[in-house]
Design a protein around this nucleic acid. Sequence first.
RNA 1: GGCCCCAUCGUCUAACGGUCAGGACACCACUCUUUCAAGGUGGUAAUACGGGUUCGAUUCCCGUUGGGGUCACCA
Length: 476
Amino acid sequence: MTPTAPRVRFAPSPTGYLHVGGARTALYNWLFARKTGGTFVLRIEDTDAERSSEANTQVILDGLGWLGLSWDEGPIFQGAEVARHRGDAERLLAEGKAYRCFCTREELEAHRKAAGGDTYKYDGRCDRLTGAEVAARIAHGTSSVIRFRMPQEEIAWDDAVHGRISFHGRDLDDMVILRSDGTPIYNLAVVSDDIAMRITHVIRGDDHISNTPKQIALYQALGARLPVFGHVPMILGADGKKLSKRHGATAVGDYQDQGILPAAMRNFLALLGWSPGEDREVMTEAEMISLFSLEAIQKKPAVFDTVKLEWMNGQYLSSIPTADLVAPVARELERMQVHVGGSHLLPPYIDAVKSRARTILEMAERVAVRLDSRHVKLDDKGRKLRLKMGDAFVGSLKTALETLSPLGESEWSAEPILERLKARADADGMKLGDLLQPIRVAVTGSTVSEPVNELLEVVGRSSSLARLTRAAERSW
RNA sequence: GGCCCCAUCGUCUAACGGUCAGGACACCACUCUUUCAAGGUGGUAAUACGGGUUCGAUUCCCGUUGGGGUCACCA
């Protein structure tokens, strides 16, 4: 390994599912590592024992695996490193860069109220305690935290995506770095770990910008060399607000469930806040890696557009061989409790449906409709067509039944079906479409399908006739 | 509210001071198919506002407005 090879990390906390924003951050780290020949480390930030869980950790690992984001080291669990975290905090204390604070939560709350709330900053009163006073309180067994004394100076860095960002220490709190129970607070744990793991590039969400000056101060106090920081923009919902549960699907698992392909998700996520230029959109993994750069990342937040994601998925779906679709569609059908009778029977159904579906789920639903008439549901456009056509709708169905019933089982295939329907339409002087579209709606419930004659063949003689009869009688 | 970040079509974005401001999604129209999509062709649609700097600003500077992030013994 060359000494200049970058080391990056993705450091989620297992307090929930893998959010699409987190997934994109992971993706950018991964792309950067692969592009530069660097190392991608996975670290699980589980120092909040209350909210962390093994199940959540597994969901995150599964999500990354599904997206194909392989890590080179880890997962490393932050919770296993508390001894080092504590050591670092105590070192800062010993070097006079941090101090013990004996204030209780109640006292802090009282100060905050007295100061008027919003702009409250710890006033450093415990920093003014004499050595004797501190010793007395410790001897008395009063519990304490360790606070870091924030340098009162400008703290700035050249952000890999934003350019120069500058804060001033006077606006920053003397933050707690070690809890009274001896466990570390986030900012200390992160810095301690990133130093120990020799991380060279910290690529994370914009929501961490305000943590960065605090962490830089910690790096400097610990005498460590600064990594490059790069803050990638947030992902917003359709209403322009930060993406959250009320926007519907926000976990990568949700999209997996909807039948989005990992490659499509990865491509879409990469484009959300980054552009390779030259109007490139659909890219292979190798192209994405070779074109990637931190400097080309957008500074402003991006709205998550599920419609475009589905379009992207359709692009990928259409280039996948039917054989590769059998297993995922079969799995979905099983989940829907649709009886298939062996997945070797599936290919003709998938072919029938493939070019018209944008997700695996949609594909499975359409296959289900063809397999089992109980899945036929009249959709809005179908209903609209029936209303628009009025009596002619049922008339067309009756005509179709008359025309097709005489066809025997052995003659029931696309070619003869089309010939008969054409001949009949000609004879009756009606437009072929006026005859076919009601059939399509009666058989599938939808106005969209493969050519009607092929549809009838796939569905089969008896089921097709039964569906036409039912639709004609019920006159839907 | 303090601090910080950001600002090109509805959405994702391109344009290292000079372009008829380009592409993609979505939408509309046309076209192919004696039927649906897909495809093809075309169209509607943007530099938030006000000042500078400059021969010339989407691009550089300042301000306004608007949006976002963050202010815990959470991460």
